[in-house]
Structures are given as structure tokens and as C-alpha cells.
């Protein structure tokens, strides 16, 4: 069975050798189970490439959750006002206002705590270097310095690669470490606007963190809202941060 599945996958990827291809096509014609297995795997491939559907479904789900929580809040408030528990509600209000006052009056401290909690420089790629990339010596050098936390020298090499996406992404991290936030924002925005690369989610995340570091609260909220409603790996953490920020 394992071999059959491997052949089906190779067939769908267009990599099945000729000697196995005819056998599989015959099997597909004559064996309904094999045919269904091929159709299933083919459809799964299509489904997991359909990021639009996944994104829309998530947005709808978030929208509903938002609506339900607003709705519940309104109803709870109405009930409280109507009931003889008004005194208890007033007490709660004092607690909430007190809490808000505490949060607002401690804002810089909270932001700093948030950054400490969530910011970590990205791990360098190419941790295993058994693959030979002659053309990327500069990148290798850059990562050598990056691993040693020597961000000034790492930057020299990353910047020598100009618009190479990996280099731009890691240069952003170097700029954060050197507290050159506007340069870091520039680097991450380049990566995000490129869209078609592996670092977009991470760049979005770091951009949000830079806004936090820089006390740009409204930008940070917008950025983390964007992440929280996406299918990003960081969506849950963004929700957590938003709880603190709002």
C-alpha cells in the first residue's frame, strides 16, 4: 500500500517513471478504490493551495465571534442595569475603571513587558550547511556574524545582497537589534510587499513588535488585528497582545 501511495503522489507531481506510469493508469481504470484514492489526493492538493477559501472562512468565523461577544456584552449590561444587583454592578464598574486606570498608568511598563515576552530575534536559516550554495557566500558570511550577535557586520553582508528577500528579512532583525526602527520597518515592508515569499508572516509579526517598541500603539493595534484575523502562525499570539493593548 505504501508503495502504491508513493506512486500516486509521484504521478500527481508528474514524477512517476514511465515503467510505473502504465501500471498505475491501468489500475486507475480498473480499480475503483485506486481511482478514488487518486481523486482524493488530487482534491486535497487543490484544497490546500486555496488560501483564499481558508482566509475567508477564518474571517467569517472571527466576524461571528466578534458579533457574539458584542451581543453578549450588551445583554449582560442590560440585565445588570435592570436588576436589583445594581450595587454589585457599580462595584464591578469601580473595579473595571480601577483596572483600566492601572493599565493606562502603567502603559510603558506593560508595553516593555509585552516586547520582552514576545520578541525574539529570528533563528538563522542554513543551520545545516550540507547543501552547497556557491552563489550565496555573502549570505553565509552574514549568518556567521548574525549567529554571533554581531549585527553590524551581519548587516554589511545582508545589505550587499540588496533586494534578496532572505537578506532583507534578516537585515530587518539586525536593525531591530541595533534599535534603528525606521530602517527595520523599511526592510519588513519590503518583504511584506513582495508577498510571494516565506517570510511574510514573520515580517508582519516583527513589524507589529517594532510598533510596540516604538510606542506607536495605534499602528501596533492595526498590525496585530491584521495578524489575528489571518491564518498566520502568530495569530493566537497577536490576539493575546491585543488583549493587553485594548
Amino acid at each position: 500500500m505504501e508503495k502504491l501511495y508513493q506512486n500516486i503522489e509521484d504521478y500527481l507531481d508528474g514524477n512517476l517513471p514511465d515503467e510505473n506510469l502504465n501500471d498505475l493508469i491501468n489500475l486507475k481504470k480498473n480499480n475503483d478504490l485506486v481511482n478514488r484514492e487518486i481523486q482524493l489526493r488530487k482534491e486535497v492538493n487543490l484544497a490546500i493551495q486555496d488560501s483564499g477559501m481558508m482566509d475567508l472562512r477564518e474571517k467569517l468565523e472571527m466576524q461571528h465571534k466578534r458579533h457574539v461577544s458584542n451581543y453578549s456584552f450588551i445583554h449582560i449590561s442590560r440585565d445588570l442595569v435592570k436588576s436589583w444587583h445594581l450595587a454589585a454592578a457599580s462595584f464591578s464598574l469601580i473595579l473595571v475603571v480601577g483596572g483600566l486606570w492601572y493599565i493606562l498608568s502603567n502603559k510603558p511598563y506593560s508595553t516593555e513587558k509585552l516586547v520582552t515576552k514576545y520578541y525574539k530575534p529570528a533563528h538563522p536559516i542554513l543551520q545545516v550547511r550540507s547543501v552547497d550554495f556557491n552563489s550565496d557566500d555573502a549570505l553565509k558570511e552574514a549568518f556567521n556574524y548574525y549567529r554571533q550577535n554581531d549585527y553590524i557586520n551581519a548587516l554589511k553582508y545582508f545589505n550587499s545582497l540588496e533586494n534578496q528577500i532572505t537578506a532583507r528579512f534578516y537585515s530587518g532583525i539586525c536593525y531591530i537589534e541595533l534599535e534603528k526602527f525606521s530602517k527595520a520597518i523599511e526592510a519588513f515592508e519590503y518583504v511584506i510587499n513582495d508577498k510571494d515569499n516565506l517570510f511574510v508572516e514573520q515580517a508582519d509579526w516583527y513589524l507589529g513588535l517594532i510598533y510596540l517598541m516604538n510606542n506607536q500603539k495605534s499602528n501596533a493595534i492595526t498590525q496585530f488585528e491584521k495578524i489575528s484575523t489571518s491564518k498566520s502562525y502568530y495569530a493566537k499570539q497577536a490576539v493575546d497582545i491585543l488583549k493587553y493593548l485594548k
Binding site: 507531481d13 492538493n45 490546500i48 493551495q49 533563528h123 538563522p124 536559516i125 542554513l126 543551520q127 545545516v128 550540507s130 547543501v131 550554495f133 532572505t166 516565506l198
Partner: peptide
């Protein structure tokens, strides 16, 4: 899986994800 289905070369995927080969 995403990169594979996007027809990115295996060597490139290894490079991007920091995998052995």
C-alpha cells in the same frame, strides 16, 4: 507542502526551510 505544490524546486525548499538536502 505549500512550497512543493507551488512547484518550488526541492533544493530551494531545503534552502528556505534550513533542511539538510
Amino acid at each position: 507542502l505549500e512550497l512543493f505544490l507551488a512547484r518550488i524546486q526541492l533544493k530551494e525548499i531545503a534552502y528556505l526551510l534550513g533542511l539538510k538536502s
